[in-house]
Amino acid sequence: MSVNLSERELFLVNKAIDSMLSQQEAEELRQLFAERPEVQREYESLKSVKEVTMELKFKQLPEETWDRYWAGVYSRLERGIAWLLISIGAAVVLAIVGYGAVMKLLEDTSTPLAVKLGVGALLLGGAVLLVSVLREKLIMGKTDKYKEVIR
C-alpha cells in the first residue's frame, strides 16, 4: 500500500496516529478521510504499527545495575586520567632521553658523518611531519562545521 500525502495531510495523519489532534484538525482529517478513503486506510494501518511498537517495553534493570553504573563511569574516568598522565609522562621522559642520546651521538667525534646526517634528516623529517599534522588540525578546527560533534 502506497499513498502519496501532501505535507499537511502527513502532518494530520501523524498527529492522529499520536492522538494529538486539536478539534479543528480532527474535523479536517474527517473530511480528508471522506474524500480519500485510501488516506484513512493508511492511517489505520500505521496506527496498528504504532500500537504494536508501543507494546515493546524495555526490561527494568535491577537496582544494583544502576547502583554500579556511576561507579563504572567513575573508574573509567580515573583510568582515562591515569592513561593521560602516563602518556604525558612517557612523552616527556622519551623526549629528554632521546634529546640526550642524540646530542651525545652528534658530539661524539668518532661517529661517522653519514650517521650524523642520517640522524639530522630523521629529526628534521619528524619535525616537518609534526608541524604539518598540527597545522592541518588547526585549519580543520577553524573550518570544520562539525567541530562541535564529539566523535
Binding site: 500525502l5 505535507e7 502527513l10 502532518f11 495523519v13 501523524n14 498527529k15 496516529i17 494501518s45 500505521l46 504499527v49 504504532k50 511498537t53
Partner: peptide
C-alpha cells in the same frame, strides 16, 4: 515538521 515526516516514513518502512 521534519520529526513528523521522518516518523511517518520510518513507520511506513517498519510496516
Amino acid at each position: 515538521g521534519t520529526v513528523m515526516s521522518r516518523l511517518y516514513h520510518a513507520r511506513r518502512r517498519l510496516r
